[in-house]
């Protein structure tokens, strides 16, 4: 139904002036009938998403509101926002926020630097590298950092022999800070990948025009460059945030499930390593995770609507 409405909504309207010509009823009816037939070929895809994504997600949310006997209750959530679980929500959000922020800044600088070289080799190297590293993650990444700055990592030992002991200065790879650093390995490339197209879409003519109109370089950035880059930067931040928030494998492999982060806690509940007071606490945590991702998405949509009204 909604798909079909969408189809009709976007029926061609004369370009430019934005007014749409009312269509004769017959055409709309015919359009609607054809619309259904047009959607038919995509039903397997929609059904598949429904069964293997929507059903699990909805069942988690539904179960989160039930006790062990199937009665409606909010006590799962009550538990989920107290004690260690509250702490892990806070820690998870902090970790994802900081990791995403750092990656946004570093990735943006790198994307700017890459875009400003005319050296083609550097460009394609960074693009290819970003494409590759952005898909890295998980367990192997954790171990390669263990080999680098773990307790007995190569860099740790190098620094030790140079008289600097990382671990006695408060650093630990197996902490939230350590994770934030490890996550950079896939977040920064992701940021670069997201930002290269919008940066390269900044046109020479805009700089020239602003300059000839009397604007200084910083005025150009203030009025044109930053407003144009801000929406993709926000978008990237949200993507990075959710990516970091949902990440499980790296943290699990690195800390063996001892760190208080939501995915880790949830994983522990699932594999039964923890004696939970309530049967469906995990579902409440899961629902909470979905909620946070959705909130992030909504914030993104709101900001986007504000910052890029010139796009519609």
């Amino acid at each position: 139904m909604t798909l079909n409405d969408e189809l009709l909504d976007r029926s061609p309207s004369p370009a430019g002036d934005g007014t749409s010509v009312p269509e004769p009823a017959g055409r709309i009816l015919r359009g609607r009938r054809r619309g259904w037939k047009n959607v038919a070929g995509t039903l397997p895809f929609i059904a598949y998403l429904g069964v293997f994504l929507a059903v699990p997600a909805v069942s988690v949310i539904a179960t989160a509101f039930q006790d062990g006997k199937g009665n409606l209750t909010l006590s799962n959530f009550n538990e989920a926002i107290h004690g260690v679980y509250l702490k892990s929500f806070i820690a998870s959000i902090q970790l994802s926020f900081v990791a995403a922020l750092v990656a946004v800044v570093v990735g943006l600088l790198a994307a700017l630097a890459v875009s400003s070289t005319s050296n083609k080799i550097v460009r394609s190297l960074v693009t290819a590298g970003s494409g590759v590293f952005a898909n890295t993650g998980g367990v192997p990444l954790a171990f390669s950092f263990v080999a680098t700055v773990g307790n007995f990592g190569i860099v740790t030992k190098l620094l030790q022999s140079a008289g600097f002991d990382l671990y006695s200065h408060g650093f630990s790879l197996y902490s939230v800070t350590g994770l934030a650093i490890v996550y950079q390995y896939f977040l920064i490339p992701l940021m670069i990948l997201i930002m290269l197209p919008p940066i390269q879409a900044l046109r020479k003519e805009w700089v020239d025009a602003s300059e000839s109109l009397g604007a200084s370089r910083s005025q150009f950035w203030r009025w044109i460059g930053i407003p144009l880059l801000a929406p993709p930067i926000f978008a990237a931040f949200i993507v990075l945030f959710t990516d970091a928030f949902a990440a499980y494998a790296t943290a699990q492999a690195l800390t063996s499930g001892t760190i208080p982060l939501v995915p880790i806690q949830l994983g522990a509940l699932i594999s039964g390593n923890v004696l939970a007071g309530q049967t469906n606490l995990g579902d409440a945590l899961g629902a909470g995770m979905i909620l946070i991702v959705v909130i992030a998405g909504l914030i993104y949509a709101t900001i986007q609507r504000r910052t890029s009204k010139w796009l519609r």
Binding site: L53, P56, A57, V239, F245, A246, L266, G286, V294
Partner: peptide
């Protein structure tokens, strides 16, 4: 719209999907 639908899995963290698979299947 379909491109956006293909991004939906990003909304549900895989840990949560796993839990959902266990509860529903």
């Amino acid at each position: 719209v379909f491109e956006a639908a293909s991004l939906l899995p990003l909304v549900v963290p895989s840990v949560v999907v796993t839990l959902g698979v266990i509860t529903s299947f």
